[in-house]
Simulated scan of single mutants.
Amino acid sequence: MTDTSDIDGDVWVTPRYLAGSAANVDPALKPLFDLGFDRHNDEYGNLYLASPDRKIRLGFLPEGEDDGIWRITAYQDPFAAPAWGVCFNDTAPTELVTAFTTALAAAYTAGPDAYLHNGAHQNRFTAVAPLLNQGWKLPYTGSGSALALRSPDGMAGLEYATGRLDPAQEITTLQARWYMEGGPKGPRWYATASTGTPVPLVAAVTTALADPAPVARWDSFLSSLLRTHVQLTPVVPPPPPAPTPLDVHRRSGTRPRPALTTTSVPRWSTSTRPGAVRR
């Protein structure tokens, strides 16, 4: 039976790309906390992390200027322009962010060649393959000059821009090399990654996006718009352990009698003789 003691939610949501963000963002921050990233909050409650060498920075910006609540950038030099940037908005499934920060922590541990390798020179198919393996459709004509995929239900998608892009706009706008989104009509979640983002980091996100496993959410937090498009299954807590005899006696207010041991009562066997009776 699955242990649900540490699950943050009371319902399982399928598909995960329609689950919205989770109430608890700690799992997305923990991989970088574990590496000793410096952290501080501003007066508005936004959180900023920086690697010890200042070459990776993360902003968790619930009070930011727009809905780009997660912004992660990497630098060849701490004082240079970003080598790459990734953004998740405020309704993106938190599992996607966690997948990215987990992969980023592993890449940072491996060294600069892993987290600063220019994604433009890597095989982009490795980031698309997880979606194709789950039945996402290719080709699909997206907006502008882009190659795009759609989920089987049409509720989520990925676009890979094939034309030339402005490096600065890739970091600050939705005009990025990689664009993922999901949800019914109306406000949708999105995630972006610029051209230089190492493909293995993008692949970590698409792998999480394609994962058919449900994710846990609090039922009361799910929007009515999403409810009509998802499957909800209660998170069933494990049964309590069976009471021990001591528990039973404690509840009844009595004290348990000591158990008899094999030496408590004399026992005879056919191989021994009783001792002589003293007079």
Rank of each mutant, 00 (worst) to 15 (best):
S145G: 03
A148C: 13
A127N: 09
G157D: 10
A156V: 07
P152I: 11
S151C: 03
G135S: 13
A146T: 15
T126H: 02
L147E: 11
N123I: 00
H121K: 14
D153V: 04
Y115M: 05
S143Q: 03
T141G: 05
L149N: 01
N118G: 10
L138Q: 03
L116W: 06
A161H: 07
H121Y: 15
A127C: 06
L138W: 12
Y115A: 09
G135H: 12
R150L: 15
L147C: 05
A161I: 03
K137C: 01
D113K: 15
S151Y: 07
P139M: 01
D113C: 05
L147Q: 14
H121A: 13
Q122Y: 01
R124T: 05
G142D: 02
N118A: 14
G111M: 09
H117R: 15
P112G: 05
Q122K: 00
S151E: 06
P139E: 05
L158T: 11
Q122D: 06
S145I: 12
F125V: 08
H117C: 13
G135Q: 10
S145C: 00
A127G: 09
P112W: 08
Y115Q: 04
G119H: 01
P130R: 06
G154W: 01
V128W: 07
F125Q: 04
G111Y: 10
Y140E: 00
G142Y: 00
M155F: 03
A120N: 08
A146P: 01
L131M: 14
Y140L: 07
S145E: 13
L158Y: 12
Y160R: 10
L138D: 08
A114T: 12
G154P: 00
F125N: 03
G157W: 09
N133G: 08
N118T: 02
P112K: 04
S143T: 10
G157R: 09
L116M: 04
P130M: 12
S151W: 04
M155H: 01
G119T: 02
G144W: 09
P130T: 10
A120Q: 15
K137L: 06
G142S: 07
A146E: 11
A156Q: 03
G135P: 09
G119M: 07
D113S: 15
N133I: 00
L138Y: 12
P152C: 10
Y140F: 11
A127D: 02
Q134V: 15
T141F: 07
Y160H: 14
G119C: 08
Q134S: 11
S143K: 13
K137T: 14
Y160W: 14
S145H: 11
L147Y: 10
P139F: 00
T141Y: 04
Y140T: 11
Y140M: 02
L149D: 02
A120P: 00
E159N: 14
N123T: 04
G142W: 01
G157E: 07
Y115N: 10
A161Q: 14
A120R: 13
G119L: 06
E159M: 14
